[in-house]
Simulated scan of single mutants.
Amino acid sequence: MTDSSPDGTDEHPLFAAIYDPVVAPFERRIAPQRRWLAADLAGTVLDIGVGTGAMFPYLAASGADEVVGVEPDPHMRKRAVERAAECGLSVTIHPTGAESLPLAADSVDVVVAALVFCTIPDVDAALDEVARVLKPGGEFRFLEHVRADGWAGRLQTTVQPVWGRLAAGCQLDRATDERFLADDRFETVAFERLDAGIPPVAPIVRGRLVRRDDPDTEEARRPAP
């Protein structure tokens, strides 16, 4: 069930309440990937779509000087605040979505996105914002589940209408990785497809993109999906 806040933001109180226990087995499986996202961080780090704060224990152990997050759902955000306190992480969480980041251009050293682009309504707008706030030479690190090939992809498309309603709008069959890798504003320095998902939430991909320091790429546009 989806409620709406006074400002029109979708809320998912039931989903937020059951999320952590439901995904606990999956989280144990992908813990090494979350550690990979948080390895050797420095400077200002932005966690997009913090949810209930799944990345917070890893960010707390990283070398980040400052951690900022965004999360539009107040129920998820409340749990994230509690988790930050539990793991001793100092973090500012803004109540906004990834399509409109309340940060200055060229102000972030690393953007981290962990299993969030599947639920972002406007992927292109969010990627525009990532490119805007990242410093030239800054990193965009991601861990996402994406569309599968063959029968597994067809299964994702078949169950998507029901899955999306139950999982707060999660899109199983998005080719998010293709959109990331095709964006000329970034240089791909690492990309892997991992045997870490649980169907239909599989495959899982992870990668590191570096914001190009090239004014010509400011006008570069992605090919239509």
Rank of each mutant, 00 (worst) to 15 (best):
M1R: 15
S4V: 11
P6V: 04
D7L: 05
G8N: 13
G8R: 11
T9F: 02
T9G: 13
D10M: 09
E11F: 06
P13E: 01
L14C: 02
F15K: 14
A16W: 05
A16Q: 06
I18D: 07
I18C: 07
D20K: 08
V22M: 15
P25M: 09
F26E: 05
R28C: 04
R28P: 15
R29S: 11
Q33I: 03
R35G: 10
R35Y: 01
L37E: 02
D40H: 13
L46G: 00
I48H: 07
G49I: 01
V50K: 02
F56G: 00
F56N: 01
Y58F: 11
A61R: 00
A61L: 06
S62L: 00
D65V: 03
V68C: 14
V68H: 15
V70Q: 14
E71P: 06
E71V: 01
P74L: 02
H75F: 10
M76K: 08
R77Q: 13
A80M: 00
R83C: 04
R83P: 01
A85G: 11
C87E: 02
C87T: 05
S90C: 10
S90F: 04
V91K: 03
T92Q: 15
L101T: 03
A104D: 13
A104N: 08
A105C: 10
D106H: 15
D106A: 14
D106P: 07
S107F: 02
V108I: 13
V110Q: 06
V110S: 08
A113W: 01
F117M: 12
I120N: 05
I120Q: 10
V123W: 08
A126P: 06
D128S: 14
E129I: 02
V133W: 03
L134T: 03
K135W: 11
E139A: 11
R141E: 13
F142I: 01
L143Q: 09
E144N: 06
R147N: 14
R147P: 11
G150K: 12
W151P: 14
R154Y: 05
V159S: 11
V159D: 11
V159L: 09
P161W: 09
W163C: 12
W163L: 02
W163M: 05
W163V: 08
G164F: 02
G164Y: 12
G164P: 08
R165W: 12
L166G: 12
L166R: 13
A167H: 03
G169F: 12
C170P: 10
L172F: 11
L172V: 00
A175T: 09
A175N: 14
T176V: 15
D177L: 06
E178N: 10
F180T: 01
D184V: 04
R185F: 01
R185Y: 04
T188W: 06
E192M: 07
R193W: 01
A196V: 03
P199V: 01
V201F: 15
A202E: 14
A202D: 15
V205K: 12
V205A: 05
R206T: 00
G207M: 07
G207R: 13
G207W: 11
L209M: 13
V210S: 05
R212H: 10
D214L: 10
E218L: 15
E218V: 12
E219F: 12
P223R: 03
P223N: 07
A224L: 11
A224T: 14
P225L: 03
